[in-house]
């Protein structure tokens, strides 16, 4: 194999490996927070390695730059969804956030009355809007 073929093989295999590890992590990790780390790693590291491999494979200048732009776009957008999902989980799953060993964000939580169990008659007062004190 020529050098460029080794480079292509390396990037494609590394990308596939990180996607696989991300998938294994989603299955093995115990809760949403930890799974978010595995999923975020798969979408950024895995996909950008695959795209780089594809860019080298087609040995076309414009295609290679297009791959770089794609990586840039993924890097600009993927953290936003990860952050939004994690924050939604944090504010809506008290059970999960109480499992954290150390939580300096707890000061932002305004304690809500205990939610009714499933199957019980609807609560007398409508649920308060989710507390959110970000500025």
């Amino acid at each position: 194999m020529t050098t460029i073929e080794w480079v292509i093989t390396f990037f494609i295999l590394a990308g596939a490996l990180f996607m696989l590890i991300g998938a294994v992590g989603i299955v093995r990790f115990p809760d949403v927070f930890a799974r978010m780390h595995a999923a975020g790693m798969a979408t950024t590291v895995g996909i950008s390695a695959l795209l780089l491999g594809a860019g080298f494979f087609f040995s076309d200048e414009f295609l290679f730059y297009r791959m770089l732009v794609l990586i840039l776009l993924i890097f600009a957008t993927s953290p936003i969804s990860t952050t939004a999902l994690t924050r939604a989980v944090y504010h809506n799953e008290p059970r999960l956030r109480k499992q954290l060993r150390h939580d300096e964000m707890a000061v932002t939580i305004v304690e809500e009355p205990v939610k009714e169990l499933a199957g019980s008659p609807p609560a007398h007062t409508p649920a308060a809007p989710a507390p959110h004190v970000a500025d």
Binding site: F33, M36, H37, T44, V45, A76, T82, T83, M105, V133
Partner: peptide
């Protein structure tokens, strides 16, 4: 964004602490 892109850390929210200092909440694996 940089913190979230780095695997193992996710920035969750921006807020203020008790002293009014702006803080970034970061979740660590």
């Amino acid at each position: 964004s940089s913190i979230t892109l780095t695997p193992g850390t996710i920035s969750v929210d921006v807020g203020r602490d008790a002293a009014g200092q702006r803080v970034l909440y970061v979740h660590n694996l």
